[in-house]
Amino acid sequence: MSIMDYNGGSVIAMVGKDCVAIASDLRLGNQALGVSSNFQKIFPITDRIFLGLPGLATDVITLKERFRFRVNMYTIKEEREIEPETFAHLVSSTLYEHRFGPYFCEPVMAGISKTPSGGTKPFIAATDLIGCLNFAKDFVVAGTASEKLYGVAEGLWEPDLEPEDLFETISQTIMNAVDRDAYSGWGCIVHVITKDKVITRTLKGRMD
């Protein structure tokens, strides 16, 4: 079994109409043994960027701190908040620095970016463990339940969902996917990001 599956856990991000959503499970395990049912894998980067880090738990924590540090340095030097596209490339290059001894995480990010005309655009991206970027227009998935997430998301997702409908779609997707995965589950957390607010909800799930 891969080191990526050692602690379990899954993340998904979806695009909606002028909004994005990102969700994860809350399990931390030691192989098949459940250890925690409140292990956060999604971290706020700015007011409108969230980063999900499924994978080896020790690297989840290390990377969370590394990205915090690098984004803080960027904010101080540039005297402005980082844009989601820029952040995605920061994630990519940070991971590629460790090309031959990688962090065992597959980051998923979601945010709202600013357009040159002053509007906003939903943004999602994911990378593999060495930083190969995937800018999808619909949804991105990662973690031990990724196959299941692909299947359910492909069946439930549709374009231009309003924030409340996007919340229902991403919630149903992750809940039903992790219920078929022994290494993910134990509750979920969902963030829906719109241009002027973030809605965060914790979902009760099966505890088996």
Binding site: E147, K148, Y150, G151, V152, E154, G155, L156, Q172, N176, A177, D179, R180
Partner: peptide, 10 residues
């Protein structure tokens, strides 16, 4: 693995 969780839901 893709289809079964979708069926569980639907």
């Amino acid at each position: 693995a893709l289809v079964q969780p979708f069926l569980d839901n639907q």
